[in-house]
Structure formats: structure tokens, C-alpha cells
């Protein structure tokens, strides 16, 4: 009896009110801290974009462009017929396709390497490997993802490139084929690990339905599990491409640093990211045309990655299965 009365009283007593106030205060602080954490990542992204867009804007409107003989910077920047990127020379040209060709070429080679291998590894791990094998292989693959990319760069230069040159000594030591292959190796873990997660998320009853029809494991993996996990696998590919497009150290070390417009993988040429490294390591003046040009190049890279992510987003939405 007395307990109940105390309890009832305690809800409205001064003490209880103070306690409640204190609790609400604590909760409020925690909420604010969490909100700050959530907003900060957005702010950082906005900040990066602000710098990229702002500096690029300065580049495109820079009066110095007239002095170096470029009347229409946009025509020069988007010159698709005869692009030249001669930012560090006397006679300057800013045809982004020069660098972009290298970025797209190395990324394409990387995907040609990584998609078949990564997908096969994912199918093996998810559908064929017995648990003990899977437990042993996954950490090894993840180790591959943890190798610093500069190490991959020297691997490309000192192992893959000599291997390619052993077929033909005329191929230069710095070439985009070796860089592309090694980027491919570097992104295999990303693709295989995300694709495997997607495949393992496919409910077992779907596999059983297939086995019960007399399908083999391979039939089941290809006809049932792959389509069911399609959205996740596409996400894996998109993340792989984004990583390949932005990959810097491997191409800077092994892909060559001359800005040449060429689609021949056996030639060396700088990608966008390699060029940015090269310029930022040199002693160029802050705020100069050369300095601003790397932001224009960087913005191009960011737009490509953004576009890829959007494509991935819509593909995932379109093929999302509701099991």
C-alpha cells in the first residue's frame, strides 16, 4: 500500500521532476552529438564539391587563358577531335579527352580483368566452397584489398610490365596495359566480396527450388542465384569501376606520365589522377593556370564517378527483388 502511494507521489514530486529534466538534457546532448556526426560527413562532401567547382570555375573564367592563346576554353577543353593536354608547356592546350582516354582505357582493362575473376570467385565462395574453405579464403582476399596501392604500382612496373615486354621488347616499360591489369587485380576483392554478400543473401529456398528440379549447382548459380542477386552484383561492379576510375598510385607508377591522347594500351600515358599527382608534386604556383587546371580535371573525374553511382542506383532500383 505505502509502496504504491510512494510510486504515485514520486511521479510528480520535485525530485522526480528534476530527474526527468536531467534525463531530457542528457538525451538532448546525445541527439545533438549524433546530428553533428551525421551532418559533418555531408558538410565535408559539400565542401569538397565547393572547392572542386569553385576552382574549376576560376579556371574556366581565368583571363590568363587569353594570354596563352586560347579564345574559347570550352572548345579546347571538350575538343574531341584533336585533343591536346599541354598544360606544363609554353603553348598550352587543355583537351581533357587526352587524360580521360587513359583513365577510361585503364579502367576498361581493369574491368575486363576484374569482372570475370571477381564474379567467378564470388560464385565459388557463395555456391561451391564448403564453409571451412570459405573461412580460409575470405581473409586472404581481404588481405589483397588491404595492400597499399603503391605496392600494386611497383608490382605492375616490375612484374607485369616485364612479362608483357617479354613478348615484344618494343613495348615501353611504362604502359597502360600493365597498369590496367593490376588495377583489375586490386579491385577483385571489392567485386568478389560485395557480389558474394549479395549472392549469399539469396534465400536458400530459392536454391532448393532449383535443386528440386534436377538442376546442378552450376545451373542453380547461373540461372537462379545470379539473377536473384543481380542488383547487388551490379552494385559490386559499380563500386569496382569507381575505384578503378579514381585509382592513382598504380597508374602514376606504372602507366606513364606523359599526357598523350591515345587508345593503344601498349603505350604509356597519364590518366587524370596521374596528372593530378604529377602537378601537385611539382613546384607550380598556387592559383596559377596549371594549378587550377588540375581542379577542372578532378571535377571531370568526380562527375564520372557520380554518374556511375547514379547509373548503379537506378539499376539496383530497377532489379531489386523482393523475396
Amino acid at each position: 500500500m505505502s509502496d504504491t502511494t510512494n510510486l504515485l507521489l514520486s511521479v510528480t514530486s520535485k525530485e522526480a521532476l528534476a530527474k526527468r529534466k536531467a534525463r531530457e538534457f542528457r538525451e538532448g546532448i546525445i541527439q545533438i552529438l549524433l546530428a553533428i556526426a551525421a551532418v559533418s560527413s555531408v558538410l565535408v562532401t559539400i565542401g569538397i564539391m565547393e572547392v572542386l567547382v569553385g576552382e574549376s570555375w576560376k579556371f574556366f573564367t581565368n583571363p590568363e587563358l587569353k594570354e596563352v592563346g586560347i579564345d574559347n576554353i570550352f572548345a579546347d577543353f571538350f575538343n574531341l577531335v584533336n585533343p591536346q593536354w599541354t598544360v606544363l608547356f609554353e603553348e598550352k592546350h587543355f583537351g581533357i579527352l587526352t587524360l580521360l582516354s587513359s583513365t577510361l582505357l585503364t579502367s576498361f582493362i581493369a574491368l575486363v580483368v576484374a569482372i570475370p575473376i571477381g564474379t567467378t570467385v564470388a560464385i565459388f565462395l557463395s555456391e561451391f566452397a564448403i564453409p571451412s574453405v570459405r573461412e580460409a579464403l575470405k581473409p586472404i582476399l581481404e588481405l589483397l584489398a588491404g595492400v597499399p596501392s603503391v605496392v600494386f604500382g611497383y608490382f605492375a612496373l616490375n612484374v607485369i610490365s616485364p612479362l608483357i615486354r617479354s613478348f615484344n621488347q618494343d613495348i615501353p616499360g611504362f604502359n597502360r596495359l600493365s597498369a590496367g591489369i593490376v588495377i583489375g587485380i586490386a579491385i577483385i576483392p571489392i567485386i568478389s566480396s560485395i557480389a558474394e554478400d549479395a549472392m549469399r543473401a539469396v534465400p536458400n529456398q530459392m536454391r532448393e527450388g532449383s535443386y528440386a528440379l534436377g538442376a546442378t549447382r552450376l545451373n542453380t548459380a547461373i540461372n537462379v542465384v545470379l539473377p536473384a542477386a543481380f542488383s547487388g552484383i551490379v552494385a559490386a561492379y559499380i563500386l569496382g569501376v569507381s575505384r578503378a576510375v579514381g585509382e592513382t598510385m598504380i597508374v602514376a607508377v606504372a602507366g606513364g606520365l606523359q599526357a598523350i591522347y591515345s587508345w593503344n594500351p601498349l603505350e604509356g600515358a597519364a590518366t587524370i589522377s596521374a596528372f593530378i599527382v604529377q602537378v601537385s608534386l611539382g613546384d607550380i604556383e598556387f592559383g596559377s593556370l596549371e594549378y587550377e587546371s588540375i581542379f577542372a580535371a578532378g571535377l571531370t573525374l568526380a562527375i564520372i564517378t557520380l554518374a556511375l553511382n547514379l547509373v548503379g542506383f537506378f539499376l539496383i532500383k530497377k532489379y531489386k527483388e523482393t523475396y
Binding site: 527450388g209 528440386a212 534436377g214 538442376a215 540461372n223 537462379v224 539473377p227 543481380f230
Partner: peptide, 25 residues
């Protein structure tokens, strides 16, 4: 043949659901 407790069609078209089993066999 076996039919399961919860319907488990494959995430493909209605036609393919039947054609798939026929084809793999």
C-alpha cells in the same frame, strides 16, 4: 519433384520459371 512450404518462384519471368527446369533437364 518437390513443392515447398513457401512458394519459391525464381526471380525471372513466369515463362522462364517453367522453361528453366525443362532446359536444364
Amino acid at each position: 519433384g518437390m513443392v515447398f512450404q513457401r512458394p519459391n518462384p525464381f526471380p525471372t519471368s513466369i515463362y522462364e520459371n517453367i522453361a528453366l527446369g525443362l532446359r536444364v533437364n
